[in-house]
Amino acid sequence: MLRYIIQRLIGMIVVMFLVVTIVFVIVRVTPGDPAAVMLGPEATQADIEGLRAKLGLDRSLPVQYGYYLLQLLRGDLGQSIFLGQPVAHALAERAEPTFFLTLFSILIASAIALPVGIYAAVKRGSFFDQTATALAMFAASIPSFWLGLLLMQVFAVRYGLFPVSGYGGPDTSFGERMMHLVLPSFALGIVSSALIMRFTRASMLDVLGDDYVRTARAKGLNGRRVVMKHAFKNALIPILTVIGLTAAVLISGAVVTETVFGLPGVGNLVVSAVMRRDYPVIQGALLVIAALYVLINFAIDMLYLAVDPRVRY
């Protein structure tokens, strides 16, 4: 077990090194000069060259890459060019709405997908199973931003039950800020539930046909106990995998939803940084998102031990 954890940690370091290299190269080979973008169209060539020298953009790529690696080893993600503050501080300020949006979306998706997927597997071939499968396919094809606009029009504009957009001011209470996340969370949760529901149904179907399930039923055990204690517990590993990967995708992919609802999250920050060619923010955000992917995968592997004692690393 300890050997496996050490191997995974080494693998995580290698993956992050590759991510750092790829992000550094991609950001710098894209067309455009950040110094010219910052100074505007009226800037002279001398002004642009002076700013490039100040930002270190006049050095060769290997030299910039070396400085960047040393900077990361010190735990410094750099200084935002436009915001004038450390990238880590800028990401921390935007982390709350993105974190809670992801958390609520996963909870909503799981609350919808798990019971529907389990019952659809138990009632395989029934009208409920066919309807649930069709609705899951329909939900998977709905763009989250379109669903968000629809929810906004109905529940915010027409009935006034929730805020239309934004995240409240500095003095807004925590409860009021969470109210701003209800509609975007449902928009992402409903779309994400489709994949989780289909995986739950498929995993349960694989388990329900096993011999030990038929034996438990033959012994006269309660049907609900057979499904939940015996079948669902053994079908949980692929379900945990897809839930974890969905959470990782939501962290990095909620950009459009955050933009539609005017949420000051990490996605909005990345979009602004790309438009302004703010290299440090782009690199820092991508590295943090990649690190979260790696950590979530590692956490899922550790959860396998908790849900299935037969797993050995």
Rank of each mutant, 00 (worst) to 15 (best):
A90Y: 06
G66H: 07
L69P: 02
F138V: 15
F82R: 15
A139G: 12
E96Y: 07
F155Y: 12
A121G: 09
L114M: 10
L151N: 12
A109I: 09
A111P: 10
R158I: 02
M178F: 02
A88E: 13
T172W: 06
M152H: 03
K123T: 01
E96N: 12
G117P: 03
T131M: 13
G166P: 03
T131Q: 05
T172K: 10
L147Y: 10
E176I: 01
M152F: 01
L149A: 09
F145G: 04
V157T: 15
T102C: 03
F138H: 10
W146E: 05
L91N: 07
G168W: 12
I81V: 13
A136C: 11
A139C: 13
A109M: 08
I142D: 03
P143K: 11
G75V: 03
R124E: 06
A88D: 11
E93D: 13
E93C: 01
Y68G: 01
M178D: 01
V182D: 08
R177F: 04
L70D: 08
L151V: 08
P97V: 03
A113L: 09
G169N: 07
I142Q: 12
L161N: 10
L101G: 05
P97Y: 00
S110L: 08
G125K: 14
L77T: 02
L147P: 08
M178S: 05
A111L: 15
S110N: 10
F100L: 08
V116W: 04
P86T: 14
L151G: 10
P97C: 04
A109H: 14
A95E: 05
L91Q: 07
A132L: 10
A92Q: 14
Q79G: 00
L77S: 03
Y68N: 05
F128V: 07
K123I: 00
G125E: 11
A140Q: 14
D76T: 09
G117D: 05
F100H: 09
L161T: 04
L70H: 07
A134C: 10
T98S: 14
A111T: 15
F155D: 04
L114R: 14
P115V: 12
G166L: 01
F155W: 13
A113E: 00
D76G: 02
L101I: 02
F99N: 00
P115W: 03
L161A: 09
L161W: 15
T131V: 09
E93M: 12
F145A: 00
S173I: 03
M152Y: 05
T131E: 03
S165C: 00
L101P: 03
I106H: 02
R158A: 01
L151T: 11
T131W: 09
V164F: 11
L103C: 00
M178L: 15
Y68P: 02
Y167C: 00
M152Q: 08
A156C: 12
R124F: 03
G148F: 13
S173E: 06
I118R: 07
A95M: 08
S173R: 14
P97T: 02
I108W: 03
K123S: 06
A136Y: 15
E93F: 07
G169E: 02
F145P: 04
M137L: 14
L181A: 05
G166C: 01
W146I: 04
Y167T: 00
M178A: 09
K123G: 01
V164H: 08
